[in-house]
Design a protein around this nucleic acid. Structure first.
Lengths: 360, 360
DNA sequence: CTGAAAGCGCTTACAG
DNA sequence: CTGAAAGCGCTTACAG
């Protein structure tokens, strides 16, 4: 059937009645025929080939024919010929989760501006035997990969690198090194700790992410280090690991509430954890920030509308994703890039009503 | 340079030392050479061509060679030849917004299971002159489009249809008709109204979405109809239009709070609107649900961790997206599909603590 | 200044 | 039962 279709399309080449069957799209050859030149000229004119020195009138004829027919080059044909798909794959953990929205948007927007298109994949399908890995990497649908956020354990990204497919990590760092764009996580938590100490807290706890997530580890190290610098005690039971979800934060907070001694302030290592922790605090009959202060990580749009509005560390996720696109583009072009890029702007503390001096 | 690369790859064809340069990937021809057959046999064996009657041993040789070399067909070459990209475009309004997470996940997951891959595009870039429209539709990168959620005004989707590219809408209906998967919005609001009436409310207000968003219109009609059926008055100032964002809900709620007469219950037409409304209520010094009840639309994962947990209408968004993928696949295959599919499971009211009897 | 030709990696009638 | 050949829609040395 595609054969027939093709031959029909050929026959159409000569038509000049302006009539176009729905679904029919002109090819290079159609433009060439309409302009009375050969395909190579059309290609070179349309692509502004600097080695081409065509007569202005020829150039004009080609341009007009292309415009009149509404010609756009077929991306697949082009990709096949040039061995470049102009497509970037974006791998995200748990697509159902909202935190990645900014990353997706930043990546998509910038990719588009750079002439690329974005294929998404769920990290769950991106193991070396996963279907998404197969489709994107092995079937050569992408020129490179952006791997976003905290993904645990090994992923197809490592295999991709061994296939020498360029990979850039966002908001996490690769297992085996590689190029990454991340925030200064240590500094981020430090901002949170400083703020709490400043308003008078000395009993701080952290609900962090899983130990095998690298951003979680850095946030934990940052917390401990900053506590030390303030000369505060780091109580054993007050540094918890939780899944980076609301439920994770909720449960961890319940543990904390059930302990003999309670902290007066919570530093959460993610937005979802903060939300879960707040929920647990209020259900336990305590007030935020009256009895306990909470700081989150990631300034989701909803943060300022929570009750109370959440004090949180803002990461420039969209900018980070955009930067990752730029770096990936360089890698694709065969240039080298720095391994670790720490984002600008820096993380920033957004003070809202979920933090206040401790109860006296 | 790609030329050189290609010729190098040719030379590699005969190697049997198992050594593989990083980044090198075998082609059909490599498999054919390794199996001692021609490319057509390889293609037909690998694709289970039923018209092929190859000797079992030939078949086996091909399979083994393919496995040994780690062969995967090049998607671009295949797509070019077959005039099918095995790619679906997913168009979303405001990629920064979290509500679409479930839709993205459902679509991606199902698409993958069906052998398709998903290209995402921001609705903002999807006007008929937008870059995303150009890349996805005009450059023929997709076999069809899934257009998700409330998008205002005309979009490239309409143009796509005129190019006879299959389009399926999710959680909205097309301007000019077309295939769509949506919930029964009227029934969704009816559930909310019924619940509020049941616990004793008679003063209900609705904060709806913009009038040019079709889901918003249906939710508004549903609200008015259900009020009538309960014999309740529909007060003029109590049906508001707002942007479907937290800020939109916040502002609308402030208007409502400033009015002479206040409702005792709010039916929001989106999750974000509900969150914004709650925030405004609490900042005005009122209690939820003590002074005012709130019902949302869409059961985001965060809903049950809000303070108080939000009573909301659950839409099966992931299922809807999956269904849309199936329908799009049919359209791509040239089959006809029903124009309007109303989702199963039906919308469902999730009762939580943001609703209670009105103050006495 | 422009054209003829090869080739990217596949699939698919058509021969034999 | 298997192979030779054409062709999808482009780009790009190479001729002339």
């Amino acid at each position: 059937m595609s054969e027939e279709h093709a031959s029909t399309s050929r026959k159409t080449r000569g038509r000049t009645d302006g009539q176009v069957r729905p679904g029919w799209r002109p090819t290079l050859a159609d433009v060439a025929a309409a302009a009375g030149v050969t395909g190579s000229v059309v290609s070179r004119v349309l692509n502004d080939d600097p080695t081409l020195s065509a007569r202005p009138e020829t150039r004009e004829r080609v341009l007009q024919a292309a415009r009149k027919l509404g010609y756009s080059p077929n991306a697949l044909a082009r990709g096949l010929r040039q061995a470049r798909t102009m497509t970037m794959g974006v791998v995200l953990p748990n697509l159902a989760y909202a935190v990645n929205a900014e990353i997706i948007r930043g990546a998509e927007r910038r990719a588009l501006a750079e002439g690329f298109v974005v294929l998404i994949a769920d990290a769950a399908e991106f193991g070396p035997t996963g279907a998404a890995y197969q489709k994107l990497v092995l079937e050569r649908r992408v020129d490179g990969l952006i791997v976003a956020s905290a993904i645990r354990g090994e992923s197809g990204a490592d295999y991709a690198q061994s296939l020498s497919l360029p990979v850039v990590y966002v908001n996490r760092r690769g297992q085996a090194g590689g190029v990454s764009v991340s925030v200064d996580d240590e500094q981020g938590v430090a901002l949170a700790v400083d703020h709490l100490v400043e308003v008078g807290h000395v009993h701080l706890a952290q609900i962090g992410g899983p130990g095998d997530v690298d951003t979680a580890r850095r946030r934990r190290r940052g917390f401990e280090a900053r506590l030390r610098e303030h000369g505060l005690v780091r109580r054993g039971g007050w540094i918890l690991e939780a899944e980076m979800t609301e439920a994770g934060g909720f449960e961890a907070m319940q543990k904390l509430l059930g302990a003999r001694r309670r902290p007066t302030a919570i530093v959460a290592s993610s937005f979802a954890i903060a939300v879960g922790a707040m929920s647990a605090i209020v259900r336990a009959g305590l007030a935020i920030p009256g009895d306990m202060s909470v700081v989150g990580f990631h300034d989701a749009p909803i943060a300022e509308f929570l009750i109370p509005p959440l004090t949180t560390v803002r990461m420039p996720l969209a900018e980070m994703a955009e930067k990752a696109v730029i770096m990936l583009e360089r890698l694709i072009a065969g240039e080298r890039a720095d391994d670790i890029v720490v984002s600008t702007p820096k993380p920033q503390l957004i003070k809202r009503a979920s933090t206040a001096p401790p109860p006296s």
